[in-house]
Design a protein around this nucleic acid. Structure first.
Length: 152
DNA sequence: GCCAACGTTGGC
DNA sequence: GCCAACGTTGGC
């Protein structure tokens, strides 16, 4: 059992979009970074906890909680020539990119990035480090507990 | 729009 | 394998 933070642009998929999806579940598509892909492929397990983070928006921060709801499978958007995420080097036989299902469990109050930075227990969070851009980062049990307690 | 930081590409 | 150039991310 591990914990993760996953960034989503709310203009694309917001916490409200996630909670409005069938069974509160959606495919996490469009990851085009090998490190993030490898987390999905090699480490994420159904039942892992997810902090759902809104990025590239007026109020960046944690907007809800979710769980991993499937194992890895090929990201369909890599095969779609009309998709922004199309990858001409990917084939059905040898896909490069991975999706995983994410199920929302709770929309929380927004925990803004600035507030996260003010919490001592979170100072080592990867997403708060200078230059951090990874869209998927591991979260420690202590960090998870601090955030869930704060948002309860 | 700016800019720092990081990742990828491709010539050599 | 090096590294410059370019593209992307994402907060501000």
């Amino acid at each position: 059992m591990q914990y993760w933070l996953m960034k989503s642009e709310p203009d694309d998929v917001s916490i409200d979009d996630l909670m409005a999806s069938p069974n509160h579940t959606t495919a996490w598509y469009g990851v085009r970074n090998y490190q993030a892909r490898n987390f999905m492929r090699d480490q994420m397990q159904p039942g892992d906890g997810v902090l759902f983070y809104h990025s590239s928006c007026p109020q960046p921060g944690i907007a809800g909680l979710a769980v991993i709801a499937s194992g890895p499978y090929p990201d369909a958007s890599q095969f779609d020539p009309n998709s922004h995420y199309h990858d001409p080097k990917a084939t059905q036989e040898q896909p490069r990119w991975i999706s995983i299902d994410v199920q929302g469990t709770q929309k929380t109050r927004l925990l803004p990035l600035a507030e996260m930075r003010s919490i001592a227990a979170l100072e080592d969070m990867l997403v708060l480090q200078k230059g951090s851009r990874l869209s998927i980062t591991p979260v420690t049990p202590a960090q998870w507990k601090a955030i869930v307690t704060l948002l309860a």
